[in-house]
Design a protein around this nucleic acid. Structure first.
Lengths: 180, 180
DNA sequence: CTTGCCTATGCAACTCGTTGCATAGCAGGA
DNA sequence: TCCTGCTATGCAACGAGTTGCATAGGCAAG
């Protein structure tokens, strides 16, 4: 399980409450690791019990109190240990690929609008990534190690979206050919 | 949930037993949808109860009997309905990306061998895909619709592996730079 | 002033997915 | 001969992940 580790990384980059973490998972981190607020709260409680993170109650005015978590030494140690473990192969779940093969037993044209929706959302995401790259890494020559690592992960996202767009165009061309 | 649909597609392409399906999921289909034999048997029983598939006992000599399943009309209808539903956004779980960001809080060099292992397995997979493409689609001009759709999914896998290899090289270059 | 949304946390119930184990006959190699 | 491994299915238990709902104050728009 790596949700704990993803949370640790996020807390090391910046301490925060469960709610804030949930929003980070919706945004940046969520592009390579998703989690709902339920999962996050549950795991935070477990990690606090295990001493991986420490919490501080913060009163806010006009809002409910929040518990701000930070990574503690045992958490850092656990993360370092995990880094050295061999990784499990990523389990891919590509629903669209299943649908494309399913289209052979139905009307391929029925998939076209679906694929176009995907294409649009990937194009929007690519634009967001490129914008974020311009904003956060305008001068790639002067980055500290943490930023260099964040940047290389972002480049992965960018290349993934570019490749996906090209592939979806290929898929659309195939579907249009079959629809004729 | 799409495991049911992935199984339906597989059974439409070729009827088979739970065990055979499990092996298909280990091989071709498993690259975009994974499942263990336990999941498969459980879902098969449910789908049979729902009338989506029908089973036939087949005696074999020298081996245990097997139940060969085929997709039934209600299953095909369910698949067609699913095809027309808007897709849920794919939930990505990219453990290596988490590790790369985690490396900022530990020794980046500790990740190098891990990334190299990944690189090798992606290179091997790409080789397998390319070999499969040569074998199954030697003449792309003369394919029936089903093969065209299988081929476009395979092309997606090939492009994904190529992009991933290039990105992992980028990651390795970054890690080596930081290790100095 | 009411409706709906945002912050912030949580319970309960459920489904999905994994792991370990069991059975049971047959084939092949050390 | 014993051990390993393959075919074929399944139970039991657990852990991961989702969904629906609840609370509770504040803010902004209609």
């Amino acid at each position: 399980m790596a949700l704990e580790h993803a949370i640790l990384v996020s807390l090391l980059e910046q301490p925060g409450s469960g709610y804030e973490l949930a929003r980070r998972f919706d945004r940046s981190i969520g592009r390579f690791w998703t989690a709902t607020h339920q999962q996050i709260y549950r795991v935070l409680r477990r990690m606090e019990a295990d001493g991986w993170i420490s919490a501080e109650e913060v009163a806010q005015d006009g809002r409910p109190d929040k518990k701000v978590y930070s990574a503690a030494a045992p958490g850092r140690a656990a993360l370092a240990g995990w880094l050295r473990e061999p990784v499990e192969p990523e389990t891919v779940r590509h629903e669209l690929a299943v649908k494309i093969r399913a289209a052979a037993f139905d009307d391929p044209a029925a998939l076209i609008s679906e694929v176009e929706r995907h294409r649009e959302s990937h194009a929007a995401l690519l634009a967001r990534y490129l914008h974020g790259e311009q904003r956060d890494f305008p001068d790639p020559g002067t980055l500290d190690p943490r930023q260099q690592l964040q940047h290389v992960v972002l480049r992965g996202g960018i290349e993934y979206e570019r490749m996906t767009l090209a592939w979806l165009d290929d898929v659309l061309a195939t579907l249009h050919r079959l629809a004729r």
